[in-house]
């Protein structure tokens, strides 16, 4: 692939992710989403960067802020948006909602409990090893999740057995309001890798090229049987922890400073230019992705809600409809 084609693809992927979460905000304003919605705006470079290194047989277990990881893994965006908007035609028939998408077809799942994703990813890694498959399990968490017991326990087991596990830590330095530097015993999460005989990698999570390179390196390491990897991607969350978060822990000026300095799409403009992709073309990509999502959201909002008569279905297999 030429530099221009690659740069265009990466930018388009980020633009699609941004447009997806902006559509979610739109849906929220129209009261089509309930509960505390977590959008990933500002963290697009991580989702877009990891997408290239993921193979269909790999697994991703994500977090409460999971939309970009789902798109990166190839989850159908129509079914995903329909699920986020609680529709019967959604990925999980409206039973899961935005924090709990499950897609066995692409080996994608998530959890709304911080840190609980990593032990589940460990299970995929053990299954791949046992079956002799060259697949890798990716467990995503944040800086907050990196302090949990499950994170430690899963890495102890993955390190001891050299399992193909990549732990991707999206370090936005804020566990809701608690700052990473106030609670972490180490300067980085990646440096803890040594304790688990894992490879620790640190990357600028606002730089899609750097993320793509680093995640590819991590996946190769794990796929090659050399054991687990911690990839720490430093990033910035533009919005509150959830929509409605009063963000009493940071000022309006601080929020603006983050948007001005760490927007991965804006930062990528100079790479696009260097690769020969014009600003006009980049603008056109943004417009096209936004329009596509607007159309998709309109379709989704026309879809029927789940029938209340089905509220008890799917707890057990015998309740599952054919």
């Amino acid at each position: 692939m030429t530099d221009a084609a690659m740069a265009r693809d990466r930018f388009r992927r980020m633009a699609a992710m941004r447009a997806f979460d902006e559509a979610c905000l739109d849906a929220l304003r129209r009261k089509a989403i309930h509960g505390e919605l977590h959008v990933g705006l500002g963290q697009e470079a991580i989702g877009a960067g990891m997408a290239e290194a993921l193979r269909p047989e790999d697994a991703v277990v994500s977090t409460h802020r999971n939309h970009f990881h789902a798109l990166a893994k190839g989850v159908d965006r129509r079914a995903l948006l329909a699920e986020i908007c609680e529709r019967e035609a959604g990925l999980c028939r409206g039973r899961g909602g935005h924090m709990h998408p499950f897609d066995p077809a692409t080996n994608f799942s998530a959890t709304g409990i911080v840190g609980a994703s990593i032990p589940v990813a460990l299970g995929y890694a053990h299954a791949f090893r046992l079956r002799g498959e060259a697949a890798v399990a990716v467990g995503v968490t944040g800086d907050g999740g990196s302090h949990t017991g499950g994170f430690h326990e899963a890495l102890v087991m993955a390190g001891a057995a050299r399992l193909p596990l990549v732990v991707l830590v999206e370090n936005n330095a804020l566990a809701i309001s608690v700052q990473f530097e106030d609670v972490s015993p180490t300067e980085t999460v990646a440096e803890r890798a040594a304790a688990y005989s894992a490879l620790g990698l640190h990357v600028d999570g606002t730089d899609v090229d750097a993320v793509a390179h680093t995640v590819a390196q991590a996946m190769d390491h794990a796929r090659g049987g050399r054991g687990p990897v911690i990839v720490e991607a430093i990033c910035h969350r533009f919005r509150g922890h959830f929509e409605g978060d009063p963000e009493g822990y940071r000022s309006k000026e601080e929020r603006q400073r983050v948007r001005d300095n760490f927007d991965p799409l804006r930062l990528y403009r100079h790479r696009l230019a260097a690769a020969g992709v014009s600003d006009d073309e980049a603008d056109a990509i943004l417009v096209a992705e936004k329009a596509a999502m607007k159309e998709l959201l309109a379709d989704v909002l026309d879809m029927p809600m789940p029938d209340p008569a089905g509220a008890m279905l799917y707890r057990f297999v015998e309740e599952a409809r054919a």
Partner: peptide, 20 residues
Amino acid sequence: TPIAEMGFTGMGVGLAQAGM
């Protein structure tokens, strides 16, 4: 397993999702 119930119980969830 090591004494890591949170780890290996979650591992069970992942194994089941992976078809085991």
